[in-house]
Protein backbone atom coordinates (compact mmCIF):
# COMPACT_ATOMS: atom_id res chain seq x y z
CA UNK A 1 0.00 0.00 0.00
CA UNK A 2 2.24 2.80 -1.18
CA UNK A 3 -0.38 4.98 -2.80
CA UNK A 4 -1.41 7.77 -0.46
CA UNK A 5 -4.83 7.40 1.11
CA UNK A 6 -7.40 10.18 0.72
CA UNK A 7 -10.22 8.75 2.79
CA UNK A 8 -10.00 6.09 5.44
CA UNK A 9 -13.01 4.85 7.39
CA UNK A 10 -13.03 2.37 10.22
CA UNK A 11 -16.44 1.23 11.48
CA UNK A 12 -17.90 4.66 11.02
CA UNK A 13 -21.44 4.67 12.45
CA UNK A 14 -24.30 7.13 12.72
CA UNK A 15 -27.35 6.45 14.85
CA UNK A 16 -30.50 8.51 15.15
CA UNK A 17 -32.06 7.16 18.33
CA UNK A 18 -32.62 3.46 17.72
CA UNK A 19 -32.26 3.76 13.99
CA UNK A 20 -28.84 2.97 12.56
CA UNK A 21 -28.47 5.06 9.43
CA UNK A 22 -24.86 4.15 8.76
CA UNK A 23 -23.71 0.83 10.20
CA UNK A 24 -19.98 0.50 10.81
CA UNK A 25 -18.72 1.21 7.30
CA UNK A 26 -15.07 0.51 6.67
CA UNK A 27 -13.10 1.28 3.50
CA UNK A 28 -10.24 3.25 2.03
CA UNK A 29 -10.16 5.53 -0.97
CA UNK A 30 -6.84 6.10 -2.72
CA UNK A 31 -5.68 9.48 -3.83
CA UNK A 32 -6.67 10.27 -7.43
CA UNK A 33 -9.33 7.60 -7.47
CA UNK A 34 -12.89 8.02 -8.77
CA UNK A 35 -14.87 6.30 -6.07
CA UNK A 36 -18.50 5.49 -6.77
CA UNK A 37 -20.68 5.44 -3.68
CA UNK A 38 -23.91 3.68 -4.66
CA UNK A 39 -26.98 2.63 -2.80
CA UNK A 40 -30.75 2.66 -2.96
CA UNK A 41 -32.72 5.62 -1.71
CA UNK A 42 -32.61 5.68 2.07
CA UNK A 43 -29.63 3.32 2.25
CA UNK A 44 -27.68 5.95 4.20
CA UNK A 45 -25.53 7.43 1.47
CA UNK A 46 -26.26 11.05 2.22
CA UNK A 47 -25.79 10.55 5.96
CA UNK A 48 -22.44 8.90 5.30
CA UNK A 49 -21.32 11.73 3.02
CA UNK A 50 -22.40 14.31 5.58
CA UNK A 51 -20.12 12.69 8.14
CA UNK A 52 -17.22 12.73 5.71
CA UNK A 53 -17.57 16.42 4.89
CA UNK A 54 -17.95 17.50 8.50
CA UNK A 55 -21.65 18.38 8.48
CA UNK A 56 -22.64 15.53 10.74
CA UNK A 57 -20.89 14.11 13.79
CA UNK A 58 -20.34 10.34 13.75
CA UNK A 59 -21.80 8.39 16.66
CA UNK A 60 -19.01 5.82 16.68
CA UNK A 61 -16.01 4.71 14.75
CA UNK A 62 -13.17 6.53 13.13
CA UNK A 63 -12.91 8.38 9.87
CA UNK A 64 -10.07 10.29 8.26
CA UNK A 65 -10.53 12.60 5.30
CA UNK A 66 -7.48 14.29 3.78
CA UNK A 67 -5.61 13.16 6.88
CA UNK A 68 -7.95 14.82 9.39
CA UNK A 69 -10.32 13.20 11.85
CA UNK A 70 -13.99 13.64 10.92
CA UNK A 71 -15.01 13.74 14.56
CA UNK A 72 -12.52 16.23 15.95
CA UNK A 73 -11.19 18.25 13.03
CA UNK A 74 -14.14 18.95 10.71
CA UNK A 75 -13.07 22.55 10.04
CA UNK A 76 -9.65 21.37 8.84
CA UNK A 77 -11.30 18.88 6.55
CA UNK A 78 -13.46 21.64 5.08
CA UNK A 79 -10.39 23.51 3.89
CA UNK A 80 -9.28 20.50 1.87
CA UNK A 81 -12.46 19.27 0.31
CA UNK A 82 -15.00 20.47 -2.18
CA UNK A 83 -18.66 19.54 -2.03
CA UNK A 84 -21.40 19.70 -4.57
CA UNK A 85 -24.86 18.54 -3.56
CA UNK A 86 -27.98 17.59 -5.48
CA UNK A 87 -29.16 21.13 -5.01
CA UNK A 88 -25.87 22.54 -6.44
CA UNK A 89 -26.09 25.45 -4.11
CA UNK A 90 -25.40 28.45 -6.24
CA UNK A 91 -27.09 31.76 -5.52
CA UNK A 92 -29.78 32.18 -8.16
CA UNK A 93 -29.91 35.93 -7.73
CA UNK A 94 -26.16 36.40 -8.25
CA UNK A 95 -24.39 36.36 -11.59
CA UNK A 96 -21.97 33.63 -12.63
CA UNK A 97 -18.99 35.82 -11.78
CA UNK A 98 -20.47 36.95 -8.46
CA UNK A 99 -20.98 33.33 -7.42
CA UNK A 100 -17.37 32.48 -8.21
CA UNK A 101 -16.17 35.57 -6.34
CA UNK A 102 -18.32 34.88 -3.29
CA UNK A 103 -17.23 31.28 -2.83
CA UNK A 104 -13.62 32.17 -3.63
CA UNK A 105 -13.91 34.92 -1.03
CA UNK A 106 -15.25 32.78 1.79
CA UNK A 107 -12.56 30.18 1.15
CA UNK A 108 -10.15 33.02 1.87
CA UNK A 109 -8.54 33.22 -1.55
CA UNK A 110 -6.68 36.42 -2.40
CA UNK A 111 -8.17 38.95 -4.79
CA UNK A 112 -5.64 38.03 -7.52
CA UNK A 113 -6.28 34.35 -7.04
CA UNK A 114 -10.03 34.88 -7.37
CA UNK A 115 -9.56 36.83 -10.58
CA UNK A 116 -7.35 34.12 -11.97
CA UNK A 117 -9.83 31.41 -10.99
CA UNK A 118 -12.74 33.34 -12.46
CA UNK A 119 -11.14 33.58 -15.90
CA UNK A 120 -10.06 29.97 -15.70
CA UNK A 121 -13.55 28.69 -14.87
CA UNK A 122 -15.28 30.92 -17.41
CA UNK A 123 -12.96 29.76 -20.17
CA UNK A 124 -13.00 26.09 -19.29
CA UNK A 125 -16.78 25.95 -19.12
CA UNK A 126 -17.22 28.38 -22.02
CA UNK A 127 -19.33 30.62 -19.85
CA UNK A 128 -17.60 33.91 -20.70
CA UNK A 129 -20.56 35.17 -22.66
CA UNK A 130 -23.01 34.64 -19.83
CA UNK A 131 -20.61 35.68 -17.07
CA UNK A 132 -22.84 38.61 -16.14
CA UNK A 133 -26.13 36.71 -16.35
CA UNK A 134 -27.97 35.66 -13.23
CA UNK A 135 -27.50 31.99 -12.45
CA UNK A 136 -31.27 31.49 -12.45
CA UNK A 137 -31.29 32.05 -16.22
CA UNK A 138 -28.80 29.26 -16.99
CA UNK A 139 -29.83 25.79 -18.22
CA UNK A 140 -29.60 23.02 -15.62
CA UNK A 141 -26.58 21.36 -17.22
CA UNK A 142 -24.58 24.58 -17.14
CA UNK A 143 -25.53 25.20 -13.53
CA UNK A 144 -24.27 21.74 -12.58
CA UNK A 145 -20.93 22.22 -14.27
CA UNK A 146 -20.60 25.69 -12.77
CA UNK A 147 -21.41 24.34 -9.31
CA UNK A 148 -18.81 21.62 -9.81
CA UNK A 149 -16.17 24.14 -10.85
CA UNK A 150 -17.03 26.41 -7.93
CA UNK A 151 -16.85 23.53 -5.46
CA UNK A 152 -13.19 23.25 -6.50
CA UNK A 153 -12.42 26.96 -6.53
CA UNK A 154 -9.95 26.50 -3.63
CA UNK A 155 -8.16 23.53 -5.28
CA UNK A 156 -9.22 20.86 -2.76
CA UNK A 157 -7.62 17.41 -2.56
CA UNK A 158 -10.95 15.64 -2.55
CA UNK A 159 -14.30 16.49 -4.15
CA UNK A 160 -17.55 15.03 -2.90
CA UNK A 161 -20.34 14.92 -5.45
CA UNK A 162 -23.78 14.00 -4.14
CA UNK A 163 -25.88 12.91 -7.13
CA UNK A 164 -24.40 15.59 -9.34
CA UNK A 165 -26.18 14.61 -12.55
CA UNK A 166 -29.79 14.34 -11.45
CA UNK A 167 -32.33 15.56 -13.98
CA UNK A 168 -30.22 16.16 -17.07
CA UNK A 169 -30.07 14.38 -20.41
CA UNK A 170 -27.49 11.66 -21.25
CA UNK A 171 -25.41 13.99 -23.41
CA UNK A 172 -24.97 16.47 -20.57
CA UNK A 173 -24.22 13.64 -18.16
CA UNK A 174 -21.53 12.41 -20.53
CA UNK A 175 -20.03 15.89 -20.60
CA UNK A 176 -20.08 16.07 -16.86
CA UNK A 177 -18.22 12.80 -16.53
CA UNK A 178 -15.57 13.99 -18.92
CA UNK A 179 -14.97 16.86 -16.51
CA UNK A 180 -14.76 14.38 -13.63
CA UNK A 181 -12.07 12.44 -15.51
CA UNK A 182 -10.09 15.62 -16.10
CA UNK A 183 -10.27 16.41 -12.40
CA UNK A 184 -9.09 12.93 -11.43
CA UNK A 185 -6.22 13.09 -13.91
CA UNK A 186 -4.95 16.13 -12.02
CA UNK A 187 -4.58 13.87 -8.98
CA UNK A 188 -7.74 14.90 -7.23
CA UNK A 189 -9.88 12.28 -5.51
CA UNK A 190 -13.50 12.18 -6.63
CA UNK A 191 -16.08 10.68 -4.29
CA UNK A 192 -19.38 10.45 -6.13
CA UNK A 193 -22.86 9.14 -5.40
CA UNK A 194 -25.25 8.37 -8.21
CA UNK A 195 -28.43 6.55 -9.15
CA UNK A 196 -27.33 5.93 -12.72
CA UNK A 197 -25.70 2.52 -13.08
CA UNK A 198 -24.07 3.42 -16.39
CA UNK A 199 -22.22 6.09 -14.44
CA UNK A 200 -21.08 3.45 -11.98
CA UNK A 201 -19.22 1.80 -14.86
CA UNK A 202 -17.10 4.94 -15.22
CA UNK A 203 -15.79 4.70 -11.67
CA UNK A 204 -12.44 3.18 -10.70
CA UNK A 205 -14.04 1.42 -7.78
CA UNK A 206 -17.60 1.17 -6.59
CA UNK A 207 -19.15 0.48 -3.22
CA UNK A 208 -22.78 -0.52 -2.85
CA UNK A 209 -24.59 0.36 0.33
CA UNK A 210 -27.66 -1.55 1.48
CA UNK A 211 -29.51 -0.60 4.67
CA UNK A 212 -26.59 1.26 6.20
CA UNK A 213 -23.97 -1.40 5.37
CA UNK A 214 -21.43 -1.65 2.59
CA UNK A 215 -22.42 -4.92 0.86
CA UNK A 216 -19.95 -4.88 -2.01
CA UNK A 217 -16.81 -2.98 -2.90
CA UNK A 218 -14.58 -3.52 -5.91
CA UNK A 219 -13.89 -2.41 -9.47
CA UNK A 220 -16.97 -2.53 -11.71
CA UNK A 221 -15.31 -5.38 -13.66
CA UNK A 222 -14.71 -7.53 -10.60
CA UNK A 223 -18.14 -6.84 -9.20
CA UNK A 224 -19.78 -8.04 -12.40
CA UNK A 225 -17.75 -11.27 -12.26
CA UNK A 226 -18.41 -11.78 -8.59
CA UNK A 227 -22.17 -11.44 -9.03
CA UNK A 228 -22.23 -13.15 -12.44
CA UNK A 229 -23.84 -10.13 -14.00
CA UNK A 230 -23.45 -8.46 -17.36
CA UNK A 231 -23.97 -4.92 -16.16
CA UNK A 232 -23.71 -2.87 -12.98
CA UNK A 233 -27.46 -2.58 -13.17
CA UNK A 234 -27.80 -6.30 -12.55
CA UNK A 235 -25.24 -6.23 -9.75
CA UNK A 236 -27.18 -3.49 -8.06
CA UNK A 237 -30.53 -5.25 -8.42
CA UNK A 238 -29.14 -8.50 -7.03
CA UNK A 239 -27.81 -6.70 -3.97
CA UNK A 240 -30.50 -4.19 -3.29
CA UNK A 241 -33.38 -6.61 -3.58
Amino acid sequence: MNTPIAIELDKLTKRFGDFIAVDAITFKVKKGEIFGFLGANGAGKTTAIKMLIGLSKPTEGMGKVAGFNVDTEPEKIKKNIGYMSQKFSLYDDLTVVENIQFYGGIYGLSREKIKEKTTEILEELELTEVSKSLVISLPLGWKQRLAFAISMVHDPEIVFLDEPTGGVDPRVRRQFWETIYQVAEKGRTVFVTTHYMDEAEYCDRVSIMVAGKIEALDTPHNLKQQFEATSMDEVFLKLAR
Binding site: L55, E75, K78, I81, S85, K87, S89, Y91, Y103, Y107
Partner: peptide, 16 residues
Amino acid sequence: VGTIEQINVTPLKKWQ
Protein backbone atom coordinates in the same frame (compact mmCIF):
# COMPACT_ATOMS: atom_id res chain seq x y z
CA VAL B 1 -32.73 26.98 -0.90
CA GLY B 2 -29.86 24.86 0.37
CA THR B 3 -27.09 27.41 0.05
CA ILE B 4 -26.49 27.27 3.78
CA GLU B 5 -25.30 23.68 3.45
CA GLN B 6 -22.77 24.82 0.89
CA ILE B 7 -21.59 27.54 3.26
CA ASN B 8 -21.36 25.03 6.10
CA VAL B 9 -18.88 22.91 4.16
CA THR B 10 -16.56 25.90 3.83
CA PRO B 11 -14.15 26.77 6.63
CA LEU B 12 -16.15 29.96 7.30
CA LYS B 13 -16.28 30.80 11.02
CA LYS B 14 -19.62 31.09 12.79
CA TRP B 15 -19.03 34.68 13.89
CA GLN B 16 -18.06 35.64 10.37
